[in-house]
Design a protein around this nucleic acid. Sequence first.
DNA 1: GCCAGGATAGAAAGCGCTTGCGCAAGAGTT
DNA 2: AACTCTTGCGCAAGCGCTTTCTATCCTGGC
Lengths: 364, 364
Amino acid sequence: MTDDLTAAPGRATLRDVAARAGVSMSTVSRVLAGGYPTAASTKDKVLRAVEELDYVANAHARALAGGASKTVAILVGSVAIEFQAYIAQGVEEQATDDKHLCLVCSTGGDPERELAYIQLMREQGARAVVLVGTVVADDAYHARMRQFAQALDAAGSRLALVGRPPLARDVPAVVVEFDNEGGAYAATSHLLTQGHERILYLGKQPGQTTAEGRLAGHLRALADFGVESDESLIVAGEFGRQPGYQMMTARLEAGPVDFTAIFAGDDPAAAGAIQALREHGLRVPDDVSMVGYDDLAVAADLGLTTVHIPHEELGRTAVRLALHQADARGEGPGLVHRKLATQLIVRDSVRPNLGPGGRRPVRS
Amino acid sequence: MTDDLTAAPGRATLRDVAARAGVSMSTVSRVLAGGYPTAASTKDKVLRAVEELDYVANAHARALAGGASKTVAILVGSVAIEFQAYIAQGVEEQATDDKHLCLVCSTGGDPERELAYIQLMREQGARAVVLVGTVVADDAYHARMRQFAQALDAAGSRLALVGRPPLARDVPAVVVEFDNEGGAYAATSHLLTQGHERILYLGKQPGQTTAEGRLAGHLRALADFGVESDESLIVAGEFGRQPGYQMMTARLEAGPVDFTAIFAGDDPAAAGAIQALREHGLRVPDDVSMVGYDDLAVAADLGLTTVHIPHEELGRTAVRLALHQADARGEGPGLVHRKLATQLIVRDSVRPNLGPGGRRPVRS
DNA sequence: GCCAGGATAGAAAGCGCTTGCGCAAGAGTT
DNA sequence: AACTCTTGCGCAAGCGCTTTCTATCCTGGC
């Protein structure tokens, strides 16, 4: 029915097209590539032959002969993790805009697999390899990563780290971070401005740069507003819904509600905390105010005030920088470092604190 | 510091390794490929040379010479759409399990781009191309898609459709659907069993097979329980949070609350509807019961009773079937069709209806 | 009218790797 | 002791495409 042209078994090659069009392979190649003077009649014949044979170029042969391969790879823990999916989306878009193909690999958060994939991407000749998400990094991992960065660079490719700290100043790589400290400062400032002084911080994780940045911003805001920080108001735990729920539950069962607001390390943790609060008869924001971080879908659903991270822009920036390293002025030899701003998104999870011990906004 | 081995500019080739190891290229190739008798000493020399030169194979050359390319492609509307991300995750996992690389492309829901990408995947020699998500399909689109399926098949590749109806019985492709009708039947039955008879259905979309299946299941349940269906209880509109909010708001403002439960076409729509209800002073499940569909994260957050779709399994099944077509018995010539079961997930958004006009459960 | 130079197109040399084929040797076979 | 199998490895032929390097032919300029 529709197969009048897929006559030949297998797949037509450049040679077949050339034969059919009655020209040389070089000519066909040039017509297809463009940018070379070709007689209209010849071009016609070639195009017709291509059509008739349903010719499809072999990308591998092309890459082999032509050199560059035009692919960008992104290694995520999982695309099913919203945060990483957004970044992947940005990477994919920018790659497409730059006429590159996007290879996505899930590492499952396993450093071993991540390293293995980088190697694989080297084989693929990926022009850029962007790494997203957290992995526990020991020294061996760091060393190999440095080596990879070097190797990729030597091969005209580039390693890009998103949301991770730079490996070192002398390692050629693109690093795109977002402002954890600044966003947290804004969030806590918002709470303080609304009269909250006893703010519970959920999600302290020593050694995890993202978490550390947020806590630092929180503490700096406290200090700037002249509010003493209270160790008992900082609870350690991971990010995520489940941990958030557990941290909150534990805190509620361990003692009194001696805080009027909560700053959850990320939105999912906030969601979990909200559930825990509800189970203890506490409502947000009626009884307790809450702010989160990341601005994921759940934040919108819950009406949660949070800190927006320009996820897609992070991804886009990473590949843009990696692909056009010429435009990018680095800090160290080859190191290009960017930090994107975050932004406070005010919704309905914070209420002014007017109760006993509370006070009106410090300024305006 | 760590670059004692990346001495050579550019990248070491098989030839370099062979020279360094003092053997022929063929030998190196065989050692690396394995599955060929090789003297231990030779193998040692080769491996050492590989190490010393930091040799990385050229995947393109390998694909060109060896034949197969070992990549699987997935075309989604956007990985930032949770539903599709889950499926992509499944595809990625199965591809990895089968030693394939996974190429992810976002079409933005544009049929044109989708078609263009399929062509590109043909060039890449992808072993399978899985299509996810909805696109408006006109006849021309259908015709070209059929042609692509045919062409991919002829090239030893395979087209896989996830969550879409088959193109035709005679088109070689893998089709993996999930049971919309059955899931909806279960959801509505659940509502009916809880004594709800006046159920508002949100999201009628003629011509959209997914939506049609769900509505059909809903109606069949109604019929089986001897409840007359009421046209006024079926509101047309798209899936998604925004449409859900709007459908609900419009309904609420247009007339009385003459229903005790709501069946939202998908979870986001349910979330939107819940917000609209709240804005009108109605609470779920206190005032109105609600069920959704898809079992996305928001359903867990909202405690929404919904229908679970085995997203990842859909993706995995698609590539499994596409890659091992031998195991798969088809319906038509080359058509492999699977329909995965869905499952009702009961949470806290449905309350028995005991009010006037309500009645105790029909059975049990 | 003759030549420089642009427009066109072909021949051929690879890109880096896999593999069929052939050739040594050492290991078994009668 | 002559002979057939393995085992181990090198040779060389491509895989399908891009890209110099050339070879024509045609045009205008002086």
